[in-house]
Amino acid sequence: MTLAVPREPVVLTGSRVVLSVPVASDLDRVTELCQGKAVAAWTTVPSPYTRTDAETFVLGLVVEGWANATSCTWGLRLSPDGELNGMVGLDGIRDGEAELGYWLAPELRGTGLMSEAVAAVLEYAFAPTGQDGLGLERVVWHAFTGNAASAAVARRAGFRFEGLRRRGGTQRGRRLDDWQAGLLRDDQRVPAAGWPDETFVQRDPELR
């Protein structure tokens, strides 16, 4: 399947969030937030995280992803010119599928802002290419086991739990168990049943 991805990044908006491509002026903020304990624990970003890492990501991987039609990355802001407070993206875009990923500044967690951002990204992901969308058929979500906060966002977005992948994820040279869930274009985007009890309990990543 040939997938048309805009050569120029697009801006997505919700009632409280603006999603726009991270740029050079965001480098210090990205560096600051990616040094946070939760981001380091639950994502695959380098740790410790340096400004050089931010430059590689924002000025390299993000730009290349849009240009090569392989990923779409947005910075989460509260206004068009506001500071970056998180990141959400679609990676591995291929054959009608992509993987959803996200993280948020600690002071904004629990506010529902990431759920709003994810909803906007999913609208864009599933909208037909002729309507300025990606025309995807499926979006997949992964999280290391114990990341109940990420699971809650995916569950509210309508993702269906698909199982535990034993040693299915990698983080800085280690293989870790991870959860997987999927959302199809025609699925209802309402909180989905069928998620196991353990996905509701946030685990201390030090005990993994």
Rank of each mutant, 00 (worst) to 15 (best):
A98R: 03
A98T: 08
E99T: 13
E99I: 10
G101P: 01
G101E: 11
L104Y: 00
A105P: 00
L108F: 07
R109T: 05
R109G: 00
T111G: 03
T111R: 13
G112Y: 02
G112M: 04
L113E: 06
L113R: 08
M114Q: 07
S115K: 10
S115I: 04
S115D: 14
V121F: 08
A125S: 03
F126I: 04
A127S: 12
P128M: 03
T129V: 14
G130L: 02
G130N: 05
Q131V: 07
Q131C: 11
G135A: 03
L136H: 00
E137F: 11
E137K: 12
R138A: 03
V140N: 01
V140K: 06
W141F: 13
W141E: 00
W141K: 01
H142K: 15
A143M: 10
A143Q: 09
F144Q: 09
T145G: 07
G146I: 04
N147G: 10
S150V: 02
A151K: 02
A152D: 07
A152E: 08
V153Y: 04
R155E: 06
R156P: 07
R156C: 05
A157P: 08
A157L: 09
G158P: 08
R160T: 12
E162D: 12
E162A: 10
E162Y: 04
G163S: 08
G163I: 04
L164Q: 05
L164E: 10
L164I: 14
R165W: 11
R165T: 09
R166I: 14
R166C: 08
R167I: 07
R167T: 13
G169Q: 08
Q171P: 06
Q171K: 12
Q171S: 13
R172V: 05
G173V: 09
R174Q: 13
R174D: 15
R175T: 14
L176K: 05
L176S: 07
D177F: 05
D178W: 09
D178V: 04
D178P: 00
W179Y: 15
Q180P: 02
Q180S: 12
G182C: 11
L184Y: 08
R185D: 07
D187Q: 08
Q188V: 11
Q188L: 15
R189A: 03
R189D: 04
R189Y: 07
V190Q: 12
P191I: 04
A192K: 09
A192F: 10
G194L: 13
G194R: 12
G194Q: 10
